[in-house]
Design a protein around this nucleic acid. Structure first.
Lengths: 342, 342
DNA sequence: AATTTTCCCGCAAACGATTGCAGTAACTAT
DNA sequence: ATAGTTACTGCAATCGTTTGCGGGAAAATT
């Protein structure tokens, strides 16, 4: 493909001056006579000159670009955080390149490698479901490439992250269910090796413990967030000899599917089974019954992730920092059982 | 920032050979002695050499990258098409850069300019809501940069596009409502200048005409897809002296909000008002009542868009091609009124 | 008038790769 | 022994910018 775009050299030849003068003129640097500056501007305009970003980046070895890697663009939570990341990055003069891993470890490794080869100045990553070892991330640290994790993090990695207190959030949600009179609590969790899922299960357990409620392993079931799997998880719970009267799901995706399953069985929510979910997606309002859910500070999360990253990029301060943001339980119909006074 | 990444030159110096030999060795080109090839490989491994993509792209003036511009990452439809676009691109050896415009014309112009400056080899674009003139797109054509539009297109632009037959789809949905006994039909549309919205309204009108039903302008209302606006649109319809008994909404986002509004008013769906919506998002199943909706071929859309783009990139065939894909009406509860036999 | 200062501008190297062409050494054929 | 291949490897240009340094002409100072 012949590149039919105009270059700085063409402008230079056309005006009989050197490329350096053109370069300086275009960028408004001093030491350029107004006339030549105007002439350059005019010709550039006429030829619709657009600087070649590749060449620019190469010589400055700075791309003013950050890479963002998420499991799935399709998830409301991720696409929303992405929006705030882009917003914050843009304000700081950075642009972002977005990649998805489809929850695959291999893709994650690949995407990150590509981003690094494209010389992004830093990475904001939410780990894939299948990621269980972290050599690729550690390599980034060794190479001193700024990284920030958000949401899907790992305890093994001592790097900057912005997360929420999943244990506490799940604890509060479970506590809320208990206070609404639930005695037999179940938890629909995500994949077994997913830290945030396990943290939420931990919070769930903690609440049971505090209120002296028994914990039965069969009341905690693991799935992959898919609709089919989540519904199955719900059906299995209902098929237990002594079905639960309260459910915590660690994601709205799971929650909606589970509620759908309950509805199919004709189970009344919240009367027979109460439920609280995670993420507080807009659809929580639309569901019948509306879904109680834990709201994550999506806006803030993106903003803080970018801040943390820029700090690393600009100050080269390699001290890992963890920002733990607050969640908020939004109570709606799905958990509002009438509590008998006594 | 000192670039502490290893370059081809360092390897060359370390081995006392030239950079060209290293380059050739690394890429498996012929005419390299096995020993030197191995030596190069070994050193590259040790130093964890990663090629600088910027330099590579510059010299080859080919980035193997396509840019995708969508209004909002947050919309299920767009994020899903993105997934299939990325999939198809990846298979063809291209990577994608994703940008969003937040429905703003200015951002669209900016994002496209950035992508072009970064030398993407082609663009797949879904126009922003606020885009009413197309100079920036025409400029791309003049510069012979391959472009494909999808979904949000424009009749003014004579370029490749992959769309659905919105008029027909809306016609069929409206026809379905009529066949379920609706007499007073309304349409909740999007912004006034949005082509796909207007096309759907046109299909709506066509159906009314065919079945000799009156068309009242006040039964067509325009909004911006937001929850608040959409609910307001629905309330306004219900406040009419003679409220509709059937509604077509041109997007699930509008549809869900409208249904929510109807529920708040205690209106029975589909008995009092039946409804069909557009996009067939997964939530359609979860809503109570479940929402009849027109399914768009999301997978295919992305795939075809990439195909059309690659055709332009590789063959340099500038003949614009329009691919019109089929939609499918998925009937669920929200439109299934009992029809009296006579 | 001579010197200094100011104002512009160009040369050439650099960023990190790729690539056409030329060149050297070893090997084969005569 | 000489010429002709073959097998490698290096030189240097190139991609499109940026930038340090140096230099010449005009303007200002003495």
């Amino acid at each position: 493909m012949k590149t039919n775009t105009t270059t700085i050299k063409e402008i230079a030849i056309l005006l009989g001056i050197s490329t350096s003068t053109v370069s300086r003129a275009l960028r408004g640097l001093p030491d350029i006579k107004p006339e030549t500056r105007n002439a350059v501007a005019r010709v550039a305009q006429e030829l619709d000159y657009q600087p070649n970003q590749l060449a620019k980046n190469l010589v400055k070895s700075s791309t003013k670009t950050i890479g963002v890697v998420v499991p799935e663009l399709n998830f409301y939570f991720f696409s929303s955080v992405l929006i705030s990341i882009e917003e914050a990055a843009l304000q700081a003069g950075y642009s972002v390149i977005i990649c998805q891993t489809h929850e695959s470890y291999l893709r994650e490794v690949n995407q990150i490698e590509n981003l690094v080869n494209s010389r992004v100045e830093g990475l904001i990553i939410s780990l894939a479901r299948d990621t269980t070892h972290y050599g690729h991330i550690e390599k980034l640290i060794r190479k001193k490439i700024p990284v920030v994790l958000f949401d899907r993090h790992s305890e093994e990695l001592n790097i900057s992250k912005v997360i929420v207190d999943n244990i506490k959030a799940a604890f509060e949600a479970t506590e809320h269910l208990i206070q609404r009179g639930c005695k037999r609590l179940a938890c629909l969790a995500g994949p077994l090796n997913l830290l945030i899922s396990n943290e939420r299960v931990q919070g769930f357990k903690n609440a049971l413990e505090k209120y002296n409620l028994p914990f039965y392993p069969e009341y905690v079931s693991h799935g992959d967030f898919s609709k089919e799997h989540s519904m199955l998880q719900a059906f299995n719970l209902m098929n237990l000899p002594n079905p639960p009267d309260g459910i915590l799901t660690i994601s709205d995706r799971i929650g909606f599917a589970a509620l759908h399953a309950l509805k199919q069985r004709g189970i009344k929510v919240p009367e027979e089974i109460a439920m609280v979910s995670f993420n507080n997606e807009p659809f929580c309002n639309y569901f019948t019954p509306s879904v109680s859910s834990i709201s994550q500070p999506i806006q803030e999360m993106g903003k803080e992730a970018v801040n943390l990253l820029l700090k690393q990029i600009e100050n080269e301060s390699p001290i890992p920092e963890t920002i733990m943001l607050k969640t908020q339980l939004v109570v709606r119909e799905s958990s509002m059982r009438k509590v008998e006074e006594n």
